[in-house]
Design a protein around this nucleic acid. Sequence first.
RNA 1: GUGCCCGUAGUUCAAUUGGCGGAGCGUCUGACUGUGGAUCAGAAGGUUGAGGGUUCGAGCCCCUCCGGGCACCCCA
Length: 444
Amino acid sequence: MPKVQPRILKGTRDFLPRTMILRQHVIDTLRRTFEQFGFEPLETPALEYAETFEGKSDAEVDKLLYRFVDHGGRRVALRYELNVALARVAAMYANELAFPFKRYQMGPVWRADKPQKGRYREFWQCDVDIVGSASMLADAEVLSVLYTALQRLGFPEFTIRLNNRKILSGLGILAGVPAEQTGGLYRAIDKLERDGEDAVRRLLLEEGLSEKVAGRLLETVQMPGGGPEVLAELRRSFAEIPIGLEGVAEMEELLRHLEALGVPATHYRLDLSMVRGLGYYTGPIFETVVERPRIGAISGGGRYDRMVGLFGPDMPATGVSLGLERILDVMTELGMVDLPSTVVQALVTVFDAQHVAASLALAQELRRAGVHTEVYLEPSAPLGRQFKYADRKGIPFVLVIGPDEVAAGVVTLKDMRSGEQRSLPRDKVSEAIQGNRRVPEDRG
RNA sequence: GUGCCCGUAGUUCAAUUGGCGGAGCGUCUGACUGUGGAUCAGAAGGUUGAGGGUUCGAGCCCCUCCGGGCACCCCA
């Protein structure tokens, strides 16, 4: 039989233990933060009817759906993101859920995209969302969770960019762009951050705007000053544009709540040029960016009041999604983490066949005492190989129990980092190990 | 979907104009004893991604395919 070439699909990855320890650390931190704010866990299938995901955003999104026909001829799809499934759940279980429904969900999603830096075909999203509250309180809470989580993960700097689709609609009306053409307008001003004013001006002119209107729009979007001043100015411009005024009022309220929640103003910013791609957002929109490394947004989200209505009764909804791999990419690149490379704290060596029982008994004692303990599983292996195994894995402590130790009623404990070695009574071993245990720092 | 770049040992990379495929790291063995990580000695490891073409001669030039990366679009 020819051997199968070991390989995996482009855009997917294996996570070896060393990497999983870091991933789980982040996932655990997020879960604790989400639950601290009263969000509860939800799981939904990775695979659903294709129609559940189709047509929820733009044609772009549908192109990136992994779709196929199953053995029963059903059209199915791998989930593209977690929001749509939440909307389905809210409609499907409307009678048994308590609203506002606050849930978090973390898991893999799939996109038939061409992979590049910070972009994978299979990646994890960590979502917190609230269904059933139209209040800006819900949006503010979600942002507060987001802020707390990033803070707790130890991010040295990050900015949550805020905007509102209703304000963008107002700007579209102000610019005299017909409603069906606003897509191009939004896409153009979204590039302001990256491509600069001149490039965006060119795009706007291509969209059919006049020099004058394009200029005024660029001026508005880049208005200097803090949130309140900019909003006051917008309020004047939108005097006769109700949707714009609504957006301004929402933003003003949101900023008030954020302040009351104690989210420092250094970590968020009103940014009228921020758009967000997904077509289903209806109100406030958010995204988190870091200065370095240069990578796309590490979180994105906003209010999507019309999605649940596609499955059942109308219900407002808002939330954010954190991109696990981008967060991990940033943390790794900035060297933000110092975690052990193994979950094992101690390796009990096996001296020879006659001492197997002694090693097993010692290991069980340590496990009962709460020490993550491993026994070397090859009794004929020389001690050197067993030590080398511990070294390669990064196990911090190695125990030896051979004829000398048995005769003296002790065990030998070696600290692999310092190289120090001492013999001590069995009942003191777990204490010695746990006194030195490295615990991942829990910030905040 | 569009464009650009790259495939040589397990891995990171060399190989002059087209002229006998090498090195570091890793792996294995030993010096070495009831002990890893240091040092020293030695060994294994390759159809140069695949197929075709040009040539006296191709890792290098040309074509096709496969695989990988980056940018755009879009997005976490």
